Amino acid sequence: MIIPAGAPVVRGIAARLVIAMTLVVIAGGVTAFLVATLVGPALFLQHVTESGGASQDAIGHAEEAFRSASTLATTIALGSATVTSVAASVFLARRIGASLRTMAEASTRLATGRLDTRVAAPGVGAEFDQLALAFNAMADRLDRDEQLRRRLTADVAHELRTPVATIAATLDALDDDVQQLTPATTAVLRAQASRLTRLSADLTAVSRADSGNLHLHRQPLAPGSILSAAAAAATGAYAAAGVALVVDAPHLPDLSVDPDRLGQVFANLLDNALRHTPAGGTVRLSAARTPTGVRFVVADDGEGIDHAHLPHLFERFYRVDSARDRAHGGSGIGLSVTRALVHAHGGTIAAHSAGPGHGAEFLIELPFDGERAPRGAHLQ
């Protein structure tokens, strides 16, 4: 660490601890010496006088001998205690100072971008060990976030590159009269513009959810009507793909939800299920009551998901099969947006699959009390 010129010298915590402990020992020693000097001889003289078996000269010599002996013994004892206490204080202060110095150096390395920095438990107390564990947990989280940021930047660049390149190539071809502005050309331009618009909308939605600027307009809705509306919106796409959409929505108590945002949740999940379910397959929408709310299930009998991918499905731009999903038009943000919207409603979402070829299901649990959102997830 570089200390600016002219800056006051600040003692480290080890020096401060040694000084403090030394002062405590000295204060205790002085107090003990004064007590022994003032109280001891007086008590001794009292006992000798009460015995009545000695002359005044003998009592004076005995008092002087006692005073000298007690002073010498007290001085030696206090000196030995002081040396021992200071030595122990120096040892302890050095260990504590070394532990804090290691933590400070690690924090400095972490602040400069060394995200692989970790510290070992110093073993000087439960509080210091807990501090080391908390530091390592923070470093792990920062490392993961940095990896996600880098992947996010790379994936956004990749997502933008293809439609922008297609639009630029088409415009160049039109300028050079290599290609004519036909309905097919217009369709290509519209498709790529739509892809950019969809990516922008997804990024905006997930960013607003993360920043807490997402506003929910709640109203009481029956779970059955929520699923029916979602199924009605997806019927055309499912019919065109030859995939059956089955709804099982029993009568359940109303939930306080934002119909538009929750509709976006089920639209994302139904779109995801349709992209991974072949023609002739089936996707089921169902709802059931739980002790605290309602559990919604979107289940399909399509391609399924390998267990290794399940923990990462809701991360931004994560794809089980990048080439396949890009070919189907997915931006890789839909499930991340879905999770943010579910959390904003105070609910939870999870994915399950028995493996490739065994389909997948997404479970959403929403509480009857919609205001009871997880800490840090509720958005007004």
Rank of each mutant, 00 (worst) to 15 (best):
12 G>E: 05
13 I>C: 10
15 A>S: 15
17 L>T: 12
19 I>N: 12
22 T>L: 14
22 T>W: 09
24 V>F: 10
26 I>C: 06
29 G>D: 11
32 A>C: 07
35 V>S: 08
35 V>M: 07
40 G>W: 01
48 V>Y: 01
49 T>V: 09
50 E>S: 12
54 A>E: 10
59 I>G: 01
68 S>D: 10
73 A>G: 11
83 V>A: 15
86 V>T: 07
88 A>P: 03
95 R>C: 03
101 R>N: 14
107 S>G: 09
108 T>M: 11
110 L>C: 01
113 G>L: 04
122 P>G: 06
125 G>D: 09
127 E>G: 05
131 L>P: 00
134 A>D: 14
135 F>E: 05
138 M>H: 11
143 D>P: 00
148 L>F: 13
149 R>A: 15
154 A>I: 09
155 D>I: 01
155 D>V: 01
159 E>I: 00
160 L>V: 10
161 R>A: 15
165 A>F: 10
166 T>G: 03
166 T>L: 05
171 L>Q: 08
177 D>Y: 12
178 V>Q: 15
184 A>T: 13
193 A>Y: 02
194 S>F: 04
197 T>W: 08
200 S>F: 09
202 D>H: 07
203 L>V: 12
204 T>S: 13
205 A>N: 08
214 L>H: 04
215 H>G: 07
220 P>D: 03
225 S>N: 13
226 I>L: 15
229 A>Y: 02
237 A>L: 08
242 G>V: 07
244 A>W: 02
244 A>C: 03
245 L>I: 05
253 P>C: 07
262 L>T: 06
264 Q>K: 09
264 Q>C: 05
265 V>A: 02
267 A>H: 06
280 G>D: 03
287 A>I: 03
298 V>Y: 00
307 H>F: 08
317 F>R: 02
319 R>F: 14
319 R>H: 14
321 D>V: 08
322 S>D: 13
324 R>V: 11
327 A>I: 05
328 H>D: 12
333 I>V: 15
339 R>I: 03
340 A>F: 01
343 H>N: 11
345 H>P: 04
346 G>T: 05
350 A>F: 05
350 A>L: 10
354 A>H: 15
356 P>I: 06
361 E>M: 06
363 L>E: 12
364 I>K: 01
365 E>W: 07
372 R>T: 10
372 R>G: 05
